[in-house]
Write a protein that binds this DNA or RNA. Structure first.
Lengths: 223, 223
DNA sequence: CTGGAAATGTTCAATATAGAACACCGCCGC
DNA sequence: GCGGCGGTGTTCTATATTGAACATTTCCAG
C-alpha cells in the first residue's frame, strides 16, 4: 500500500520515434487501455519499453499483500530497463497503464545492439538513467526525512508538475486516495485526513477536479 | 538522521584501473583518510569518481539538520555521476570516506568523451547505473513496506554481504548505531533497542566485533 | 594512567501511525 | 428507480516512533 515517483525526462533534441523507426527498432507498437498491464512483477524480462504517449504506474507487492507505487512514468520515459544488465532478468515491479497509452517495445537484444552502435541513443539513455536515479533517490530521502503529511504535499506538487512546465496553480488528473496512499507509504484514511486539512487551509480544492496552489503547498513542504 | 544502501557492483571482465590508465584518464588518483570528504552537498559538480579501494558514505542533510545516509559505496562503484547529465550540476549529497580510500578522479569532460568513444567502458557504466537504480529502488520499497525493526535486519544483512560473496555468518566492519539509524531512517535509541533484542535472540553477536547469523536474521526479515 | 569524548544502554512521555470499522455519497448498468 | 460499488469522510484503539534525558561503558590522546 505505498509509494511515490513522477519521473520527468530531460528535454533533449532527440526524436525517439523517428530514430527507433530508422534504426529498424520500435517496429512493435503497443496500445494499451486504462488498467491494462505491460508486465507483472516476477515475469521474465526480455524487452524494454518507451512511453510514446500516456501514463504508466509501476507497483510492487509485498509478502503481506501491501501494494506500493514506485513511480509514475509519462511520455519520454523508459520502462523495464532492468532486463539489460541482469543475467536472468525478472521484472521487479508491475507496470500498468493508468490512461490510454502507446508504447514502443524494444527487444532485449535489439536494445543491447543499439546501445552499442548508436551514440546518440546511448547518450539519451544514460541521461535518462541518471535522471531516474536522482529521482528515486529524492523519493528515498523524502521517506527518510519527512512525515506522511509532507510526503503527501510533495506528491501533490509533483503530480501538479507532471508533464507540465511549472504552473503556479494546476488541475491534477484524477487520482484516488488509495493510490496516493500507496505512493507515499501510508494508509488511505491518513490521506483522507490530510487532504481535508489541506482543503480547509486553502492549499488545495476539489469537488470534481483536484487543483493545488503550489506556492502554498510548498510552504508546508519546506517547513 | 537517516538511510540505507550498500551498492554492490556487478562482476565484469573489466579492469577499470588499467583501462583508465590506457585511455589517458584516471591520471588523478586521490588517497583519502578516514573521515575525509570527497565533496559536499551543494558543491559544484565537475568530476566523477571511481572507488579503487576503501569505502565511501553518501549522506544528505535536511533543512532541520537531520542526516540521512543514502548509500555505502565500495570497490568498483562510481561516485558523483550526477554531474554528467545536468546542465548546472550540483552535488546532491556529501561523500565521506569511512575507511582509508583510493579514488580515481575523472573530469566531467573526460567522462563524456570516454563514454562516447569507448564502448566497453560505456557498457560497464550503464550496467552500473542499472544496478544502482534497482538498489535504490529496493531501499525505497523497504522504506515503504517495512517497520524499522525489519529495516535494521535488512541493513545488517546487506552489510554482512558487502564486498563478500555470500557467507552464512559474517563479521561486519565497525559501524556506529548512529550511522545505522541514519541508514534506516530512525533514531539511535531505537537501533540500540533492536540491536539488543537481536542479540538476546541470538541473531547477532557483538563485544568488540559485530557478527550476524544471516539465516536467522533472514527469518525476521521475511516475516 | 587519566580525563574527556564518543558510543552505547535505558527510560519515559508526547505523538504519529496503522488498521479496522462504519456511514455516506454519486455514478452506472439494468 | 434499484442495487451495487468504488471512492470518501470520520472515528477509535492498539502500537510504533520520536526525541530528549541520563547513566554507563569504551576508546584514545596526551
Amino acid at each position: 500500500m505505498k509509494t511515490l515517483s513522477t519521473s520527468r525526462p530531460k528535454r533533449l533534441a532527440f526524436q525517439p520515434k523517428a530514430f527507433l523507426a530508422k534504426s529498424g527498432l520500435g517496429r512493435t507498437i503497443l496500445d494499451l487501455k486504462k488498467r491494462q498491464t505491460v508486465f507483472a512483477q516476477g515475469d521474465a524480462a526480455d524487452a524494454v519499453f518507451y512511453v510514446q504517449k500516456g501514463r504508466i504506474k509501476l507497483t510492487v507487492i509485498s509478502k503481506r499483500g501491501k501494494e506500493a507505487t514506485i513511480a509514475l512514468l509519462g511520455t519520454g520515459n523508459f520502462l523495464g530497463e532492468e532486463c539489460i544488465a541482469a543475467i536472468q532478468p525478472q521484472r521487479m515491479a508491475t507496470a500498468t497503464a493508468i490512461t490510454p497509452t502507446t508504447l514502443l517495445k524494444i527487444e532485449r537484444k535489439e536494445m543491447a545492439r543499439v546501445l552499442h552502435e548508436e551514440k546518440l541513443f546511448s547518450e539519451v539513455f544514460v541521461s535518462y538513467l541518471l535522471a531516474r536515479n536522482t529521482r528515486i533517490q529524492e523519493d528515498l530521502v523524502d521517506q527518510l526525512f519527512n512525515s506522511s503529511e509532507k510526503r503527501l504535499a510533495r506528491a501533490l506538487l509533483l503530480l501538479a508538475q507532471f508533464g507540465k512546465e511549472s504552473a503556479p496553480e494546476t488541475v491534477i488528473p484524477k487520482i484516488s486516495q488509495e493510490t496516493l496512499a500507496e505512493m507515499i507509504g501510508t494508509t488511505r484514511s491518513r490521506v483522507s485526513f490530510f487532504m481535508n486539512r489541506f482543503r480547509k487551509l486553502g492549499f488545495i480544492e476539489y469537488n470534481g477536479k483536484l487543483s493545488v496552489h503550489s506556492s502554498l503547498l510548498n510552504i508546508i513542504l519546506h517547513d
